[in-house]
Design a protein around this nucleic acid. Structure first.
Lengths: 200, 200, 200, 200
DNA sequence: AATGAATGAGCATTCATTCAT
DNA sequence: TATGAATGAATGCTCATTCAT
C-alpha cells in the first residue's frame, strides 16, 4: 500500500472511531464519516468493505490503543502494595476521562447484536504478569481483600465504567452530587476502601 | 380515551420497549414497531408524537415498572442484617436477568445524546426509608463496611449492571468463565465479601 | 337542518375560505381546517363530501359575497360620469385591499386543474343595468374612451387584479415604489387617464 | 461537473418547470418529477437540496429564459413609434401563449408564502435602454398617452397577464367570447386604443 | 349531530452501496 | 488511488378519508 493510501485509511479509521463512539452503529452515516475525514466515500468501501467492517475495525483499534494500566502505574503498584487499589482505580478513571471513546465503543458493541466482538483482545494483554505480581504482593501484605484477581479487576472495572457510562441517568437518580469533583473524590475513596481489609 | 384506544396505546408502548431496548433509538424503525404491535403506524404519532416521544415514554415506563428491590427482599434485609449485601445484590442481579429491558434502555439512553432523561425518576423512590433502615441496622451490627449508603448502593448497582451490560466484551476479556453458573456464583460471592467487614 | 348544524357548517366554510385562500387547494389540510374551525373533522365530510367539494363551496361563497361595485359607487357614477373610471377603479382596488380572499381564491382556482369553476357566477350579476347605464352616460359625455363595456371592465379588472396578485414579483421587477402609498396613487392616476379621452 | 451530471441536472430542471408550473409547489411530487425526468430521485436532492430549492431554481430559470420583448420587436418599435403599443402587447400576448410556464410560475410564486422571490431578476434587464428609447420616441410623436414608462409597461403587463391567468374564471364571467380568436382580436384592439392619444 | 379511533396510500428525504471515469 | 455520479430500498412522518360509538 502506498503512503497516500495509508494516510487515507488512517484518517478514515480515526474519524470512524470518533463518530461511531459518539453516535453508535446505527446513528452513524458513512457519508458523515467520509465528509468529516475529508475522504471520498468510496475509499471506505475499498478499505473496510462495509459499515460493519469499519465499525469492527474501529472497535478493535480502540482496544489495541488502550492499555488498561500505564507502565508507570504498574511499576509504582509493585513498589507500593498498600496503594494498589487506589493507583489502579485512579488510572482507570483517568483513562475513561481522557479517552471516552473506549467505554462508549464498548457500550455500543455490547448493545448491538449486529456487531461481532471477535476482534476484541484482552486489554490486559501483555500486562498480565505485572498485574499479577503487584496483586500477589498486595495480598500477601494484607493490603487487599482475599479475593481472586478476576473479581478484583472486575470490581474496579465495574465501578469506573458504571460511573462514566451511566452519568446521564445517575445524575437523575443520585441526588447527592457524585459528579462534582468533591463528590467524586469522596465516592472513590469509599469504593477504594471496599477493596481493602478493614480491621473494623 | 376509549377502551380500544387504551389497548392500542398500550400495545404500542409494550412493543416499543421491546424493540427499542433491543436495537436502540437509531436502530429501531417505527414501521417495525407498528408491524410488531399489529397497529397502524399513524397511531404511534397520534399517541406519542414522534419517535423521540415514543422512546422517552418507553424509557419512563421501564423506570416506573422497575422497583430496585422487592418488598420481600427489603423486609428480609431488615430482619437479617448479616445478609443485607447478599440479598440486595441477588435481587438486583435477578432483576437484570428477568428484565433485561432495564439495563438496555438505561444504556441506550446514556449513550444517545438526543435522548432526554428528564422523565427518569429515582428508581428507589418510595423505598428509601426501608433501604436506609436496613442499611443502618446492618452497619450498626458491623455487617457492612463503614461507607455511605450512596457509595454502597452505587457499588452494588455498578457490579450488577456491569456484569450484564458488558457481557459480550467481558466474555472475550475474562478467560475465566464468569458467565457460567458456577463462575458467576463464585464471582458474586467474592464481590459480596467486598462489602463486608473482614476480620483478617 | 338544525340550528347547531347550520352554525357548524358555517364555521367550516368561513374557516375554509380563510385557509384555502391562504394556502391553496394542495397546501391546505382538512385537519387544519377542522382544528381552526373548532369542529370535528368528520363534519366536513358530512357537509361537503370531500376536499374538492369544500373548496368549490368556498370559491362559490367568495364569489357570492363579492359585489364588484358597491351600490353607492354605482349611484355616484351615474351622477358623476366624469369620475366613472376613477370611482370604479378605486372601488375595485379597495375591494382587493379589504377582501384579499377574492383574488387569491380566483388565482388558485385558475391555476388548479382539479378545480371546477362551474359554480362561479358573474360577479356583476344584478348590477349589469346600473353599470351599463353609467357607462353609457359617461361615453355619451365623452368622459371615457370609445370602447366596449367588456373591454372597459376587463381593463379595470386587469390592473387592479394584477397590482394585488403579483405584488411579490412586481416588487422585484419595478424598482420604482409602486407599493408605497404615493407610488400607488401616482400609478393609479396614470392608469385612470388611460381610460379617458385625451385632448392632446 | 461531468457531462453526464450536467445532463441529469438539466433534465431535472426542465421537468421541474413543467410540473411545478402545472401543479404548483404543494401539488407537485418529487417522485413525479423524478419519474417524468427519468432520473433517480436522489439526484434531485444532490443537485437542488430540497423541494424548495428546486422550485426556486425553476422559478429563476423561467425568469432568465424569458425576455419580455424580442429584439426584433424592439427594433421595429423604434422604427415605427405609431405601432409601439400594438407591437409590445402582441409580443407579450404571444409570449404567454407560447410559454405558459411563465405566468403560471409567476402566479404560484406570488400565492405561495413559502416561496422566496429573491432569485427573480428584472425581466427587462438589458432591454431597458431600447424600451426607454422606443417609448420616448413614441411619446414625442404623440403616439402614446402622456404617462410614465412604468405605468405604461404595468398596463401592458396587466392586461396580458390577466387575460391568460384568469381564463378559467373569466370564461364564466364574460359571456362575450373574449377567448375566441375574433373576440380576443377585438378586445386587444380596444385595449391598445387605451394607450393611444385619442383626438376624440 | 357529533366525535374519537383507525387506516392505507403517500411524501419529502436519507442512506448504504455500486458504477464509471 | 481517487472521485463524482447513480441507485433502490428505506425511513420518519402526513393526509384524506372511513369506521364505530
Amino acid at each position: 500500500m502506498q503512503e497516500r493510501a495509508k494516510a487515507t485509511k488512517s484518517k478514515i479509521l480515526k474519524t470512524a472511531i470518533r463518530i461511531f463512539s459518539e453516535n453508535g452503529f446505527y446513528g452513524t452515516r458513512i457519508d458523515g464519516i467520509a465528509a468529516a475525514a475529508g475522504v471520498n466515500k468510496q475509499r471506505i468501501y475499498a478499505y473496510y468493505n462495509n459499515k460493519e467492517g469499519l465499525f469492527e475495525a474501529a472497535l478493535a483499534y480502540v482496544f489495541e490503543e488502550v492499555s488498561l494500566f500505564s507502565e508507570k502505574t504498574l511499576e509504582q503498584a509493585v513498589r507500593e502494595p498498600e496503594n494498589l487499589t487506589s493507583l489502579l482505580l485512579t488510572d482507570f478513571m483517568n483513562l475513561h476521562d481522557r479517552y471516552p471513546y473506549f467505554w462508549r465503543m464498548l457500550a455500543w458493541a455490547n448493545l448491538n447484536k449486529d456487531v461481532r466482538a471477535d476482534s476484541i483482545l484482552d486489554i490486559r494483554a501483555g500486562q498480565d504478569r505485572m498485574i499479577e505480581k503487584a496483586f500477589a504482593r498486595a495480598r500477601e501484605k494484607g493490603c487487599v481483600k482475599d479475593i481472586s484477581l478476576t473479581a478484583y479487576i472486575f470490581g474496579l472495572m465495574a465501578v469506573s465504567f458504571f460511573y462514566h457510562a451511566n452519568r446521564k441517568t445517575l445524575s437523575m437518580t443520585f441526588s447527592s452530587g457524585i459528579y462534582t469533583p468533591a463528590g467524586r473524590e469522596q465516592l472513590m475513596e469509599q469504593l477504594i476502601s471496599l477493596f481493602q481489609v478493614s480491621s473494623r
